[in-house]
């Protein structure tokens, strides 16, 4: 592992929006995360790279407690989630986890839109059911967010009628409607046909102009270069190398990172 020089990481003044400390996660005897430390400042955009099975999804899923960490600490704005129980695992009340998830939005590879609801209803669902917003207000905000992802005209359609790219943009609007402080993207374009990738990446780039804090797992290296303020390379459950996009993507110091990047011979920045 590499010591990150202070130049690579922006100076952290306020408590980091997100702090991950000594995060371990095992599934049975399979230790997937082997001690992850990560501080994320407000407005940082972190691209997470790594080969399949290196623990990228598990890392994201531990951050919003879709998976319960086996050991370590997750803190938002300096406040830890849950308490350390026996054997190091974190135990948290379900109410606390629900509040956490309203603050940390997640976008999945498979979109996971609700098929029995229209596009507009999909986006309204969180604000109405989880936040108790009245329907009229929720409808107005949902329409705003749909406009932001360029899908105002699809509001009354059912998701099955939309292309994969459009569905993923709705999923982004659905996450945004909760007004989360942090957005987690788990390979948001990996299940899209190549010609639909661009429209989703454009929406994500648009969000980065708003100064949103985002963590994104991707295999689109060219996109990662333009999107990220910091790039992490995960290998076998550890952060193997991290730094600015130039450092990690153009001049990787670690052999593993170099080998990983060589597999993507045809990418351009």
């Amino acid at each position: 592992m590499v010591d990150v020089t202070s130049a690579s990481v922006p100076p952290v003044l306020a408590p980091p929006v997100l702090a991950v400390e000594g995060l371990h996660k095992s599934f049975g005897s399979n230790e997937v995360l082997k001690g992850i430390d990560l501080k994320v400042a407000a407005g940082e955009r972190i691209a997470i790279l790594g080969s399949s099975g290196s623990g990228k999804s598990t890392l994201l899923r531990c951050i919003n407690f879709m998976e319960t960490p086996s050991a370590g600490r997750i803190a938002l704005d300096g406040t830890s989630i849950g308490v350390e129980g026996r054997g190091g695992a974190i135990t948290a009340r379900s109410g606390e986890l629900r509040r956490l998830r309203t603050r940390v939005g997640m976008i999945f590879q498979q979109f996971n839109l609700f098929p029995h609801m229209t596009v507009l209803e999909n986006v309204m669902e969180g604000p109405v059911t989880v936040k108790g917003m009245n329907r009229k207000e929720a409808r107005a905000t949902a329409q705003d967010y749909l406009k932001r992802v360029g899908l105002s005209d699809k509001a009354e359609q059912y998701p099955q009628r939309l292309s994969g790219g459009q569905q993923q943009r709705v999923a982004i609007a659905r996450a945004l409607a909760m007004e989360p402080e942090i957005l987690l993207f788990d390979e948001p374009t990996s299940s899209l046909d190549p010609e639909l990738v661009g429209e989703v990446l454009d929406v994500i780039l648009g969000l980065s102009k708003e100064g949103r804090t985002m963590l994104l797992v991707t295999h689109e290296l060219g996109f990662a270069y333009h999107f990220a303020t910091r790039v992490l390379f995960l290998h076998e459950g550890r952060i193997h190398e991290q730094g600015t996009p130039d450092e990690v993507l153009k001049n990787p110091r670690e052999e593993r990172t170099q080998a990983f990047l060589r597999r993507f011979s045809a990418f351009h920045f």
Partner: peptide, 19 residues
């Protein structure tokens, strides 16, 4: 994925079932 999406926007078990 439907369970995951519901949980990820902060739904409780009961809300997830019902909605």
């Amino acid at each position: 994925g439907q369970w995951e999406a519901g949980r990820a926007i902060g739904m409780s078990h009961v809300q997830l079932m019902r909605r």
